[in-house]
Design a protein around this nucleic acid. Structure first.
Lengths: 206, 206
DNA sequence: GAACTATACGACCGATCGTGCTATCTTGTC
DNA sequence: GACAAGATAGCACGATCGGTCGTATAGTTC
């Protein structure tokens, strides 16, 4: 439309602060919830004034949306990207599953899977926050479905199977592992998920 | 310690109010969350004054605990009891699953399964509220496990299977159906859960 | 109908919520 | 080193939070 020939640039310390805020926000939201997380509490947690923090966002909803974006990037970097690095077919499908379980065990988010934690909170509150969360979850399910289809194309999974259905079932195991692991953080919860997935698609290739 | 020989009796209108409060609270908590549900909001919702409502409970935590108890009774009456009425073995296992899916479809709780909704909120907050929720969930998983064991005893499921593992897998399908149904209330979410369970234990007997 | 008390209400408390406004630093550019 | 703009803190606001208190009402028992 037009030009802003001169400065609209953020400052270096500003972007550093913003990153720190959103990083803490994404992690804290899995414990306090997206709505339960208060501006003041978040500011205290990262040693900043409430108004100083708030100056980075126009509203709490914008903070929530930015938090979701950051959580999505973390999830992508910790789970989706390394999982997708595996060769297509069964290896990739198993890699995605194992990376998900591993990110639980690593405690990437203190309250378990960010999107599982947050979806339960906002699933009945229409608005852009809910919409964006559903989008990211849809992308994840899509990645699983694609991996299933890849395994079918490679002849490792019966092509007669409904790929979306199988992705649903695998995701069910992962989500259940997440819930069980948050309740009682032990290897058992993760192992049960693994065993469930193995029952669905066979043992991990090696 | 001492005797209160005479009147400590609640009044009839009191118990009616208390029931109405807890009934609304259990249902609203699946939308607003156990912490997100405010005393004032709940009072407005049932057309009562905040202080009048609050007089029934010593603290918000006690209201939450009573709410959980009420939700447990509802869940029991709507799902566990009718499911357990089916004959032991596969019929009962399938009945429990179908009753769970049916109570989602019936919209018994506007935010889906009460305990799934609320567990995600309190799973990282130690205290009596979390403890009680985990207990009820444990009872539910126990009922599923018992039903699996019953089906094994009847020779309908391979006795070599780990009953707890199979209960985990069935519960995973149900929880995933719940999550999907809350996101998009359509028969597809329920049907996917059914198909997943059928893959685990075979089609429902008739 | 009198006496008792569970119930319900309105007013109010201190704390905290999200959100602005303003002044003071800090950083990057010339 | 001056200067503009970005970043942060201080302060205050209206609303709402969980919670308390005194009081009026209505159900129960005799």
């Amino acid at each position: 439309m037009n030009a802003q020939p001169t400065t609209r640039r953020p400052r270096s310390d500003g972007v550093r602060s913003r990153r720190a805020i959103l990083d803490a926000s994404a992690r804290l939201a899995t414990v306090e919830g997206l709505n339960g997380l208060s501006i003041g509490g978040l500011a205290d947690h990262i040693g900043m004034s409430k108004s100083g923090l708030y100056a980075h966002f126009k509203s709490k909803e914008e903070l929530q949306l930015a938090t979701i974006e950051t959580a999505g990037e973390i999830f992508n970097a910790e789970v989706v990207a390394p999982g997708s690095a595996a060769p297509p077919g069964l290896p990739r499908l198993w890699a995605l599953s194992e990376e998900f379980l591993a990110h639980l065990e690593r405690g990437v988010f203190p309250g378990g899977c960010f999107f599982a934690s947050v979806a339960a909170e906002v699933d009945t509150r229409p608005g852009p926050v809910r919409d964006r969360i559903f989008e990211v979850i849809g992308d994840w399910v899509g990645a699983l479905t694609d991996a299933v289809a890849g395994a079918q194309a490679a002849g490792e999974i019966d092509p007669a199977e409904d790929a979306e259905q199988l992705a649903f079932e695998i995701d069910a195991m992962l989500l259940m592992s997440n819930a069980a692991y948050v309740m009682e953080p032990s290897a058992e919860a993760l192992e049960r998920g693994r065993r469930g997935i193995a029952k669905l698609i066979g043992p991990p290739p090696r």
